[in-house]
């Protein structure tokens, strides 16, 4: 065992070049940024989508149904490529039509937009279920107090649905952190791509992929602790289940 541990080229992981540790940590930070941005964008799309699905007219509902069904039936990798090419194309065509120069979209912004759009479909379904789970009596009571639609939702529906939505939202966060790895295929230098470059340059494939897996795993485990804490806080007012 000791001989095995000694045979691993640990110096490759040192934080400054020639070690690749710094690159991996920078990749992890990028991964976290993209995941967080996409998650927040996904939640915003999801909230709008859920409200649209519940209160919207037939055309809006049909459109949202198509969006959530299509996004959830097509592999994320295919979606990421489609949205990436289509999104940058569309933006540049619009800019050219308006007489501006073409721009290169930064990897960070494109990654956030692509993953956020995919997350939005899943978040729509999670939030729709959570909103419908809020007891109707509470909303009626708010209406009886004379609150407007916006006030009812801001003060009653959104806070009351959070406990119902949290397990699903926690799951979505774990999914988005792992989906960021797919951006390596389009060439964003997040953790997966940094790992691939480090592994390719040093030929220590096994070492670097194990380290990358460990970094992703630690992100997941820390997230689990954070979400458990948030869930406990939001369930304060609810009776214990079971």
């Amino acid at each position: 065992m000791n001989a095995f541990m000694a045979s691993i080229p640990w110096e490759l992981l040192s934080l400054s070049p020639p070690g690749w540790g710094g690159n991996l940590l920078r990749g992890l930070a990028k991964t976290f940024q993209i995941a967080l941005g996409a998650y927040i964008l996904g939640l915003m799309i999801g909230l709008a989508g859920a409200l649209g699905k519940i209160y919207g007219g037939p055309i809006l509902r049909w459109g949202l149904e198509t969006y959530t069904t299509l996004i959830r039936a097509v592999p994320e990798l295919v979606l990421i490529l489609l949205l990436y090419y289509a999104g940058t194309d569309l933006l540049n065509q619009t800019l050219e039509a308006l007489g501006y120069e073409r721009v290169d979209i930064s990897g960070l912004a494109a990654g956030i937009y692509v993953l956020g759009f995919v997350q939005g479909a899943y978040a729509t379904e999670v939030l729709r279920g959570a909103i419908l789970a809020v007891p109707a009596g509470q909303v009626e009571a708010a209406a009886a107090f004379g609150m407007s639609w916006v006030q009812r939702h801001r003060r009653i529906v959104v806070p009351a649905m959070i406990p119902f939505a949290l397990p699903g939202l926690a799951n979505l966060w774990l999914i988005v952190t792992k989906d960021t790895a797919l951006l390596a295929v389009v060439g964003f230098s997040e953790l997966a791509l940094e790992t691939r470059q480090a592994a390719g340059a040093t030929k220590s494939y096994f070492l670097f992929y194990v380290i990358a897996a460990a970094l992703y795993l630690s992100l997941t485990l820390v997230s689990n602790v954070v979400f458990r804490w948030i869930e406990r806080r939001y369930r304060r007012g609810q009776p214990e289940l079971g």
Partner: peptide
């Protein structure tokens, strides 16, 4: 289960193919 569910499948795939494959 925790390890599989906590890491991206892409990394697992590359770990198996490039990592094990290179050993």
């Amino acid at each position: 289960c925790t390890m599989i569910r906590g890491t991206p499948l892409l990394i697992q795939l590359w770990l198996v193919y490039y990592g094990l494959g290179s050993l």
